[in-house]
Structures are given as C-alpha cells and as structure tokens.
Design a binder for these strands. Structure first.
Lengths: 260, 260
DNA sequence: CGCTGCTTTGAACAACTTCAACTTCTGTGG
DNA sequence: CCACAGAAGTTGAAGTTGTTCAAAGCAGCG
C-alpha cells in the first residue's frame, strides 16, 4: 500500500514517512524477530513526529505517559529532576533505542527527554503496542528484551557511579559510545559527541572541570585525540584497560549468541 | 500455622504451597489487576522453592535465565560483579518484588541474587509468564509496570549516586526503606535492616566506615535511634529533610522539573 | 563586533576514603 | 555454659580524589 520505492510526490514528508520495513534500524528496534506482515501492523500504529531541534523536549517530567518513543535519527538525553532543581542525566539514546520506559509504572514521565541535536523519533502509543504485542510473540519478546536492556544498562551505570574512579568512568563512557556507534555501522574510532561536557559530567557524576581535565589527560596519555566534540580513539586497547575491562571481553554485548 | 483450606496432605509443604489468591502479597505482586480465575492460571505455572538461608544464592551472575523470582518472605540483595572482582549492590528486594528482570535481555543473569536472611521465593518460568500475559491483559500490564518500576528505581538510585552527598544518601536510603515497610503493613518508624553495613555502603557508593559514622551522626542529630540492625526513626520529618525531599512530598512523588 | 555560553586551566579546599586499632557480636565446639 | 575465633561494626588520624572558586580562552551568533 505504501510507496517507498519510486514516486516521490511529497518530498518533504519522505524523511518522516519511512516505513519500519524500510528503516535502517529494524535490526535494533522493536521489529527484531517479527515477521514481515506483523511489522506492517506495528508500522500502522506508529506515529512519526516532526523532527526536534537541539534542546527541544520530547516530553518533560510530569507529562502524562501515553507512548514510548524510538529515536530514529539524532540523539536524546533523559534527565531525572531532583527536588532541589538539579538534574541527573540517566542516559543518552542513539537511533534504535526506546525512551520513556520508566514512565509505564506510574503513567507519568519521571524523566524528561531532550534532543541533543536535530532528532527525529517514532511515537509508539503504548496501549496499542501492548495489544499488538499480545498477538505477536516476537514483538512481545523484543519489547521485554528492550525493557530488560534498560535495566541492565542502568545497572552498569550504577556500577560506574558506585565503584569506579573518575578516569575509569570517562574511559568506560567512551568505550561504550564507541561500541554504540559500531553497532550502528559507524566508525568506532572516530565520532562526534552530541552532548556537552556538562552533560557528560552530569551523567558520570563528575564536575564539568573534572571531565575537561580528564579529556586532556587521556589525550596526553595517547589514548584519544580530542578536538572539541570530535573524538578519535587512538588506542582502543589502552582505553579499554583504563575503563577496567579485561582485554578479552567487550564492554556490553547486546547479542545473545556467544561462544564461551 | 496457617490452614489454607481443605485437604492438604503433605504438611511439610504447606508453608510452601500458599496459593497466589491466599498470599498476602497479591496487592504488590503480579496478580494486581488480574481476575480471580486468571490468578489461578498464574498460580499453576509458579513453582515454590524451598526457603533459602542467609547467604545462599538464588542465582549467580552467569547462570542461564529461565525464570523471574518473586520474594515471598525475607529479603534479597542483587549484586553486579565488576571485572575486577568487586561487586555493586544494585538493589535490595522485599516481599512482593520481582528479581532477575535484568536477565531477560541476554538470557543470562548478569547480577547475582543472595538471600539476606531466611527467604522464600516463587519461581515464575518466564516463557510461560510471557505466554500467559499475552492472554491476560491485566497480567501483561502489571508485568510491564513492574519492569518499569525497576527502571524508575534504578534512576532514583542513579540520582543518589550521582548527585547526593553521603548524609543525604543514607537519609534517602532510610526513608525509602521506611516507605517500603509501610507499604507492606509494617511500622515505618521501627524496623530491622536485614543487610550489613557493608551492603549498605556498597549500595550507597560509600565506605563502610562512612556509613557507620553517618549512623552515629544521624543518631546524634536526633533523627534516628540505632541499635545494631534495629532502627527507630525518631524524627521522620527531619530525616526526610536531610534526604533532600521537600516537606510536602513523600520520597517519590511526581514533580514538574524545569529545564536548565 | 561584542555578546553569551561552553570549555579549559590553575589553586585552594572539602569530602570521603584508607589505614589502623579497637570493640562488639555471632556462632561453634569443647 | 563458657571460651574462643572470626566477622562485623565503630572510631580516630592521615591521605586522596575530586570539587569549588576564579579567571581566562574560544566558538557561535545576532
């Protein structure tokens, strides 16, 4: 029914109207393990929103929860507000990731989500997603895997804040970003950080100044090359070592197949 | 000795064989919002395990994941191992709580779970739970809510480790424990902590010595009375204030944060 | 061109950790 | 029942690590 192949009648909408099956993220997103026909059904409930510009909120803490969002392009941070007006950045989200999963419990967002750059997202009404996932076992499983992954990540983050020193934290962060880019088919050794030093510091539980100093220190050590937001990882092994990861095991493997 | 009803033949199993409908935790656990008949179906897939003694593992990091567990009585901690052999306590779990949700993603436990005292749990084979929850909307929703709550809690924990000072952390911890006990119908002002100071310190990202000093300081301040593992909260308001919570709102209330 | 906001750098300071010694509790076996 | 050993908890003093404060350097933008 949909025409993704030839006729570009409405050029301006093409960017928004990519069907799930035509989306480059099918491998990371909800459709994993879902049959072609069922992806169409999923497709039918998804709403594509207009792209957000840097700094715009996807939703704010306190907003009623009605849908989960998937980052399609760009990137997003989520922040949990403190009572005192501070914020904790709880995560950065790259294309293919679900955001807003913490809101299901109370039916209201407890974290805000902000675009770090021009970003487009898919909106998936959660009630409909639940209904559909009850009918499509593969979708149900993938939804559960993604929710579980969120928990898993938070635990890794917790471990970082609870047990690691400053240098170890930044190194871990960079390794993890590098892995994320690799998963998405980009260079794992050269990338642009969309978030500010402030965001990184907040995420890592460090002062901005500390983050800045660490960047220069890692550069001095020859692990990385920094130019503003551009990062080149010069010595991945070394960086991994600083991150406190044993040489053999990558930091966070998303796949379940393994050979140990 | 409770008598659950009619003809139970094997007395020694009676303690283990409390049906969901007769369980005091129905209000907190999976059956929330599930009809009487459907609870029976849930009941049918649940396996009650023999009680664990203090220090016994429910499962270990690396174990294959096949079921989620619900704490029925006692308490459990989960710990994420570091590569260096350290551990981060990621949570304490009281009756009615699901443990093992982080394992769904990779099909393998990444955290271990240890009984903090004599503890009994229900084992819910996850495959069957998924199948059933596809047929019982209420169950599906509750499962999602519980998974989401896990995320939410981790975010609060993250905020604590990222933004709060030592005193604030311990105060927050105590307030949260107090709330948990209250939810379960116990006294919110007088309770026994089943975990060691070491566990608390680990959980809060603090050294044992710091935790110990803080307990004495809070006692000196008149907020609490400490006697070994027994805690009496003498001044709940004060404690809440130290935890960094505004007087009017209990520890986890919706708030409209403002962007910065 | 001169804002404004982000980043970097230096120096003093504070918070928490580490080390070390000591006390109290718990459980075990004589 | 008591004694003893090991674990857990407490307390003090010294030591680190990262924070805070202050100021200067840079990029983007109207």
């Amino acid at each position: 029914m949909k025409d993704t192949g030839g006729g570009d009648k409405v050029v301006s909408l093409k960017g928004l109207k990519v069907a799930c099956r035509a989306c480059s993220l099918v491998q990371l997103c909800l459709p994993v393990g879902v049959s072609r026909e069922d992806v169409e059904r999923l497709d039918a409930i998804i709403r594509r929103r207009r792209p957000l510009r840097r700094g715009e909120y996807l939703y704010r803490a306190g907003d009623r929860f009605h849908a989960v969002h998937v980052v399609r392009s760009g990137s997003v941070k989520s922040c949990a507000p403190t009572d005192e007006g501070h914020e904790q950045v709880t995560g950065f989200h790259l294309p293919g990731e679900l955001v807003g999963l913490d809101a299901i419990h109370v039916g209201e967002h407890r974290c805000g989500a902000v675009a770090l750059e021009t970003t487009s997202v898919c909106e998936v009404p959660f009630g409909q997603l639940e209904t559909l996932s009850a009918q499509v076992p593969g979708l149900q499983q993938q939804l559960h895997r993604l929710m579980s992954r969120e928990v898993l990540r938070d635990h890794e983050h917790l471990l970082m804040l609870g047990k690691k020193g400053a240098e170890e934290r930044l190194a871990t962060f960079l390794v993890s970003v590098s892995n994320s880019f690799q998963e998405r088919g980009y260079s794992p050794t050269e990338f642009r950080l969309s978030m500010s030093r402030g965001d990184i510091g907040n995420y890592l539980g460090l002062a901005v100044e500390t983050v800045s100093r660490l960047f220069t220190r890692l550069q001095t050590l020859g692990c990385i090359e920094v130019e503003r937001k551009l990062i080149r990882i010069a010595d991945p092994e070394r960086l991994r070592a600083l991150a406190g990861v044993r040489p053999c095991e990558p930091v966070a493997q998303p796949r379940h197949g393994n050979g140990s």
